[in-house]
Computed example of a mutant assay.
Amino acid sequence: MTSALHDDTDPGTDDRIQEARLWRDNGWTAKVIKNEDDDGWAVAMIKDGEAEPALVGPWTMGRDKKNPKPLDVAAFNTLVKTASEVLRRHEQQLHAMYHKSYTVSEGEHRIVVTLDIVPDEDNPHALLSAEDALGERLAQVRVPPTFKLTRASAAAWVADEFRKPA
Rank of each mutant, 00 (worst) to 15 (best):
T2H: 10
R88P: 01
G49K: 05
E131W: 03
L22N: 02
G40R: 10
R137Q: 13
Y102W: 14
A74G: 04
T150D: 01
S153K: 05
V118D: 12
V86Y: 04
H90S: 14
T29P: 03
R21A: 05
L55P: 00
R63N: 11
K47I: 06
T150H: 05
A75E: 06
S129K: 11
G62T: 04
V104Q: 02
P124E: 10
V104P: 03
D39N: 15
V158L: 01
R63Q: 04
A51V: 04
K69P: 02
V56M: 09
P68C: 10
G12K: 10
Q140D: 06
I46P: 04
A42M: 14
D72M: 08
K66Y: 11
E106Q: 12
A30Q: 04
L115H: 03
D160Y: 10
D160M: 04
L71T: 01
E36R: 13
V73L: 09
T82L: 09
A159P: 03
T146Y: 00
T103M: 06
D122L: 13
D120W: 07
H109F: 07
F162C: 04
V43L: 13
G62S: 10
A152F: 05
D72Y: 08
D38Q: 10
D116W: 00
T13G: 07
D39M: 12
D120K: 09
L22D: 00
D116E: 10
D120H: 14
W41P: 00
K164Y: 00
W59T: 01
T114L: 02
H6Q: 10
T146Q: 09
V141W: 03
T60C: 09
E36Q: 07
K31W: 03
G62K: 11
E106S: 15
G107T: 03
F76L: 02
A139Y: 10
A159M: 08
A154N: 05
M61I: 06
E50V: 11
V56Y: 06
L22S: 06
L149V: 04
N77F: 00
E85G: 01
I17Y: 01
G62N: 07
I17H: 01
K69E: 14
R21C: 03
K148D: 12
A54K: 06
A30E: 02
D122S: 11
R151F: 04
T82A: 08
S3K: 06
M45I: 04
Y98N: 15
L127A: 02
Q92H: 13
R142D: 14
T78W: 05
A75I: 05
A152I: 05
